[in-house]
Computed example of a mutant assay.
Amino acid sequence: MALQVIPQIANLRARLAQEDSIAFVPTMGNLHAGHIHLVELARQRAECVVASIFVNPLQFGANEDLANYPRTLAEDCEKLQAAGADIVFTPSVEEMYPTEQTMRITPPPIANELCGAARPGHFDGVATVVMKLFSIVQPQIAVFGKKDFQQLFIIRELVRQFNLPIEIVAGETQREHSGLALSSRNGYLNDGQKLEAQRLYRTLKLIVDNVQKGNRDYAAIEAQSSQYLTQLGWIVDYVSIRSAATLMPASPDDRDLVALAAARQGSTRLIDNIEFSV
């Protein structure tokens, strides 16, 4: 069955009125194998799979790459068709925000740490657009990737605190053979930067190995890892060991942990994480 491309909210709602089993995969387009993995997970969980492609201006800061964000709708639709999606929702900014969006979702304070510290207001924009998309699509299941671990945590809180009848399914991070996490922003890297970008994942693996061997001086591990990357020319936003359950800084009593990092190669900001237990 051909993929249906629907840009209007009213038309999408009319089309979905006949469906009672909907899985939803929100994206900003420029799709790669990581996104397609999420669509395939959705395909396993519901009769009707809806993806959205919307570059959300609310989550971009003043000096971020909104205007230059890659828009590849034709190629994206081919990939969604091949992955088994039924519908792609492709609203314009005017369709999603017909008037100024003065009503916003304010996430909990954790949104101001980690990625939120370097991107103030980012998660307000994410939470607001996700709430709007959930309201429009009204899925029973929504699928998000673990690569954006903080985003996944905040969306789970959104669903829990607003009692939304939506199951959040988390897709594992998809990687290149080198270990580099797939990301739309990898396309900004030149050959040398892409080779160096593998080091972010390797650094996280070293952190995991260090902790699992018994080192609980998390602050020292974080500082050493950050210094290591900085000496190699990275611009480091953070390296952090957190509780996987709360995203608060890990204590020696925590057993389920996540090591997270965000750093820049040139002007390209890369993020990654590894969940692990001790």
Rank of each mutant, 00 (worst) to 15 (best):
Q265A: 14
Q161E: 13
R156G: 14
N30E: 02
V49S: 04
E64T: 09
A74F: 06
Q150L: 12
R156K: 15
I274D: 07
S92K: 06
V211Y: 04
E167V: 12
A23Q: 02
Q212L: 09
P91I: 08
V126I: 13
R216F: 12
H177C: 09
I110G: 02
D20I: 06
G145N: 06
Q193G: 14
R242N: 11
Y218E: 06
I36L: 15
I274N: 07
L73D: 05
A82M: 09
N186P: 03
N190A: 07
A117S: 13
S243K: 07
P91Y: 10
A244L: 15
K132V: 07
A17G: 07
G121L: 05
F276P: 00
A245W: 03
Q59I: 04
L158R: 04
R104I: 12
E176G: 00
S183K: 01
L257K: 08
V126S: 05
C115A: 13
I274V: 15
V130K: 02
Q212N: 13
S178K: 08
Q265K: 13
I154V: 14
K205P: 01
D124Y: 00
V143I: 14
F24P: 03
V129F: 01
F153E: 01
S178N: 09
R43L: 09
D191E: 13
N186E: 02
Q101M: 14
P70E: 05
K147F: 02
A261M: 07
Y188M: 08
Q161P: 03
M103L: 15
N56D: 05
L247T: 00
